[in-house]
């Protein structure tokens, strides 16, 4: 193909047929340089801009998917008003922040200590790293099904806990997925299990990039292990901590898979996250325009959060680079 076009460009007089003429036209400099631009922009418009504009448009309609689209009428901000006054929307949004906040705190703390321990281990370090990274590599659906089995009333988790529950006088058959409080815990635990790997990885790379000479300098100056940790290592790990917080928070706000796989938002609505709530409104109740309005509102909210997050990240990165410069 390349040969054909090159030849065609070189000897336009000989070209015959539509295809080779098209090739000749494409290989002109003024046309050719636009090709990558057109492809990238075309994809962007097709995949992102059109659905986005369509969503905005639908959010101003009064439309359910069980009625013909032609009959949908413009309804102004009615959908937005409905979303903002919907108790379910606010409840699931609050629940999302509760799940995300709790899970991320545990992921950070556990990930940090695992990384710190593995950083000190010399023998078998690679094995530990591999093991601790496995949860992140498990497909979320598979992890969800595994947890649904673990959480069975007579399942392994309750079996393991039974000595303790007996001691405390609690019924050992904890209904992990049908008790509202336990189900919330179950979702949070599943998320912690899967995503502590990521914080572990971030913190481990943070520990590995601590300049050893700084720690040597502190040792010669007489600092003990505790002082070295709190005065040198921890402050230098701040960029890694911010990165872990931002990345995990952004992800955790989209919590969806374990909810669908474990509880379907139940019992009642006790484990409905905002992502699940939207999915249900749109795909179960066919409330397309309501869902569109809710997604636009969420987009605005999360954009603000992400902007703050990215601003923090950039600030940390600049600091980190400055640190690297001085360290070398």
């Amino acid at each position: 193909m390349a040969d054909v076009t090159l030849k065609a460009a070189a000897e336009p007089a000989v070209t015959k047929g539509a295809l080779s003429r098209f090739g000749a036209w494409l290989s002109q400099e003024r046309v050719f340089r636009w090709i990558p631009f057109v492809l990238v922009e075309g994809t962007f418009i097709l995949v992102i801009i059109i659905p986005f504009l369509l969503t905005i448009y639908i959010s101003f309609l009064r439309w359910r998917a069980n009625r013909p689209f032609e009959q949908a009428q413009l309804s102004g901000f009615r959908n937005y008003e409905q979303v903002l006054t919907d108790a379910g929307f606010w409840a699931s949004l609050g629940r999302t922040f509760y799940f995300a906040g709790t899970a991320v705190i545990f992921e950070l703390v556990i990930g940090f200590f695992l990384a710190m321990l593995v950083h000190r281990v010399v023998r078998g370090r690679r094995i530990y790293i591999t093991l601790f990274l496995i949860p992140m590599m498990v497909v979320p659906v598979v992890a969800g099904y595994n947890f649904s089995m673990i959480y069975l009333d007579s399942g392994p988790l309750n079996q393991l806990l039974s000595p303790f529950t007996n001691m405390l006088g609690i019924n050992p058959r904890i209904r992990w997925l049908s008790d509202p409080t336990a189900a919330q815990l179950a979702i949070i635990i599943a998320d912690i299990w899967q995503w502590t790997s990521l914080t572990f990885l971030i913190f481990l790379s943070g520990f590995s990039s601590l300049p050893p000479q700084l720690i040597n300098a502190a040792r010669v100056l007489g600092a003990n292990k505790r002082q070295i940790f709190f005065w040198i290592e921890l402050p230098l790990l701040k960029p890694a901590i911010v990165i872990a917080v931002v990345i995990r928070s952004m992800e955790a706000l989209k919590l969806f898979d374990p909810v669908v796989l474990l509880t379907f938002g139940g019992p009642g609505t006790s484990t409905q996250t905002i992502a699940y709530y939207l999915w249900e409104q749109v795909w179960q109740f066919n409330k397309y325009s309501f869902g569109a309005a809710a997604s636009i509102l969420l987009l605005i909210l999360f954009s603000v959060l992400i902007f703050v997050g990215i601003w923090l990240l950039i600030r940390q990165r600049n600091q980190f680079e400055q640190q690297q410069e001085t360290a070398t």
Binding site: P211, L214, N216, A217, V220, G222, P235, L236, Q322
Partner: peptide
């Protein structure tokens, strides 16, 4: 830290933070 000595390192090892 208990040898009573001071050390200057090749890359200086100043605490950047």
């Amino acid at each position: 830290g208990e040898r009573g000595l001071g050390m200057v390192f090749q890359d200086l090892a100043l605490f950047p933070h």
